[in-house]
Amino acid sequence: MSSGADSAADAASLNPPEPLSVRLIGRGSAAGALVIAMVALAYAVVLPLVAEAVSAPAPPRVIDIGEGATVTVAETWSEGSPAAGETTLTQGGATLVLSEPEATERLPIETLDGLTSGWIETAPEGSVATAPRTFTTDAGDDAATVVLQEPLETVQAWVVSDGAHEVIAVLTAPPAAWEATSASAQVLVRSLTFAEAAP
């Protein structure tokens, strides 16, 4: 019984199905091209459009980063998901995290030195840090910044202090995105205003 089925099974085992590579010979591979085109379009066109829609830029706005301190944010920055004690902004693959104002008696450059030392200890081999640069914000507060170049990304930190409180801002960006976002982040940090001290 079932000799027909047996011989069919034998035939199947003797002639296993041809691999796809053989079946493709002499064919145009339109289906394959469609798959690859969809992957390329999804990544190069659709994803940036979705990102634009999801993180739709708003007109320049003033954001409260806590304790009454504010920054003026350009429309190119999008607000990330809220987290306790910090404000996250994103732009073109870069992330800027601003801390809530904290009481301090240190100068911005002192806080920055501590941050830089901590970074250098944990940063990958080959990382380099620039010398800190000081400046004054639009509101007249003291501020300082430093750039740490790691092999895979660039990090820039700012510390702004009104003498009693300080805010730390950290920008993390892949090298390709850093140049564009650094200048915009600098303008944003310059706009930082602390709450008026109570009389």
Binding site: Y43, A44, T90, T95, A176
Partner: peptide, 14 residues
């Protein structure tokens, strides 16, 4: 250069 910033923005917005 197009996909990575887009993916990152979607990720950090979500």
């Amino acid at each position: 250069t197009k996909a990575s910033p887009g993916f990152s923005d979607v990720l950090t917005s979500t």
